[in-house]
Amino acid sequence: MTPQEEIEALIARVAMGHRKSFRELYERTSAKLFGIASRVLRDEAQAEEVLQEVFLRIWHRADSYKANGYSPMTWLITITRNAAIDRLRRARREGTATEPVEIAERLYDPQPGPEARAVERDEARVLNECLDELPDDRASMVRQAYLQGMTYAELSESTGVKLNTVRTWLRRSLLQLRECLSR
C-alpha cells in the first residue's frame, strides 16, 4: 500500500469514528501541517492552536473527503492553510494581528502546489491507464459515476442498463481498478 493509500485508509477509518486511526493520522501528518500553519502565521503558539482546530475539523469532516485523484495530503494541507488564513483575518478584524495579513493572503493559494500537481498528474495518468484496461462501457460508467458525480439511477436511465447491473458492473470495475492500481 502506498503512503497515499495508507493516509486515505486512515481518513476513511476516522470518518467511522476510529480513534486509533485518528491518532495515527495525527502522528503521520501533524508535523507537516504544523509547518504549514507556522509558515502562514509566523507564530508557533497560534500554529499549535490552529493545528488543534484542524484536527477537530478532520475528526468531524473526515467523511467529506473523497478519493478523487487528489492526494489526501492536499486535502489536509488545504484545511490547514484555510484555518491559518482564517485565524489571521480574525486577528486583523479584532486588531490583534502581529504580522501583516496581506502577506499571508498572498501566500494563500487554494490550488495544489507544483509538487502536488506533479503527483496528481502521475496518479491521474496511472488511473487513466487502469481505466483503459476496462471495457469501454464500464470505464465510461466509472468516469460518469466517480468523476462526474452521476448516480447509479442516472447511469441506468442514460445507458438503458438495469440498475442492479449498473451496481454490479461498477463494483466489479472498482475491484479491477484497485487491483490494477496496486501493481
Results as ranks from 00 to 15, higher is better:
G35K: 03
F55P: 02
R143Y: 03
S71H: 12
Y152S: 04
E120S: 13
A62G: 09
D63V: 08
E129Q: 15
F22N: 02
L76M: 04
S21R: 03
L41N: 01
T96V: 00
G69L: 09
V54E: 00
N82T: 02
A67P: 03
R28G: 01
I79R: 01
K32N: 09
S21L: 03
A91S: 15
R171S: 10
N82S: 04
K32G: 00
N68W: 02
T168D: 09
V40K: 03
L41I: 01
T80C: 12
E105G: 04
E49H: 15
R89D: 05
L170N: 01
L155Q: 08
R178Q: 11
E49L: 11
E6W: 13
E115N: 11
W75S: 08
V119L: 14
R39L: 08
E115D: 13
D122Q: 15
L33R: 04
P72M: 05
Q144V: 05
F22G: 03
K66V: 13
E94Y: 14
N82R: 11
A91Y: 04
E154N: 13
Q4P: 00
I77Q: 08
V54G: 02
Q46K: 15
N68H: 11
S71W: 10
N128Q: 15
R125H: 09
C180T: 05
E49W: 07
N164G: 06
I58T: 02
N68F: 07
A97T: 02
G113I: 07
R117N: 12
T29S: 14
T29H: 09
A83I: 01
L175C: 07
A97I: 02
Q4M: 09
I36N: 02
P112I: 05
R81E: 08
I7W: 07
D137H: 15
I58P: 00
N82E: 03
E53F: 12
A12T: 05
R178N: 10
S38R: 12
W169G: 07
R167F: 06
N68Y: 02
L147V: 05
T80V: 12
T165P: 00
S30E: 04
L177I: 08
R167H: 11
T168P: 03
R183Q: 10
G149C: 11
E129K: 08
H18D: 14
Q46S: 14
H60N: 11
E27A: 14
E179M: 14
R87P: 00
D43N: 15
R106I: 07
T29C: 14
I85P: 05
V119E: 14
